[in-house]
Amino acid sequence: MQRPDWAPETIDVERPSVARMYDYYLGGSHNFAVDRAAAQAMVAAVPEAPLMAQANRAFLRRAVQFLCEAGIRQFLDIGSGIPTVGNVHEIAQRHAPDSRVVYVDVDPVAVAHSREILAGNESATVVQEDLRHPERILAHPDVRAMIDFSQPVAVLIVAVLHFVGEHDRPAEVLRTLRAALAPGSYLVLSQASDDGRSEAERAEAQKVYQRTDNPLWVRSRAELTAFFDGFELVEPGVVWVPQWRPETPDSAEDAERAVFLGGVGRLGG
């Protein structure tokens, strides 16, 4: 008999997970040998990989800090991964304890781990969903229970979009999300870019991520900027992530080595 389409998939920890690889880059130990092997192969291809992850994480922290100061109290972090240090809810709830955070990830292990971490936190939750199905995320009862879409929300899609290929229509995904947001909401995006990379580096990085469930789709600055359609980019626009509102001037040096481009947009109206 044929399995119906609502039957869940099984967990395969024999394949590297991008969430756990990312944790490894950040110095965490929430990973398995298979993840470390894949991450090390990535580092061999792109030696800056750990730096990229750190820079990206720091961008997330600064962006959330900015959003808190802008008065945002609701966060939807899609593709949150393994909740390593410096989670959105830690930053946001330190700033304003009533901040509500929903994490969304497709990786069931990441979701299980997040659930453990969030146990007892009534203002934060995690749901297992796929960025490629924004309508399911928006309709999820746990999302709707935590987030009031008539009020501004910050949607964070950080270090995830490069796993969404054109065939999965990322622009449409973002349009669907935008349509659900109240004026004054924010969109935070960052993703890997091949601006200024050599052909060889690109090919090798691609190869590493082909081994995971998530091949890599790098994009140019123009392409990432286009994803902010309908939003007004806040200063300084779409830049290498270390250049986005750096804390100290020298921390933005060699910014393009971070490989990630990022930006924050505000929904006007």
Binding site: T10, I11, V13, P108
Partner: peptide, 20 residues
Amino acid sequence: EQEAIRRAALIARADAERAL
């Protein structure tokens, strides 16, 4: 951390199997 991620994997697998 190793223990935490292993536990998460077990929970996820048990959840998936239960759902299955």
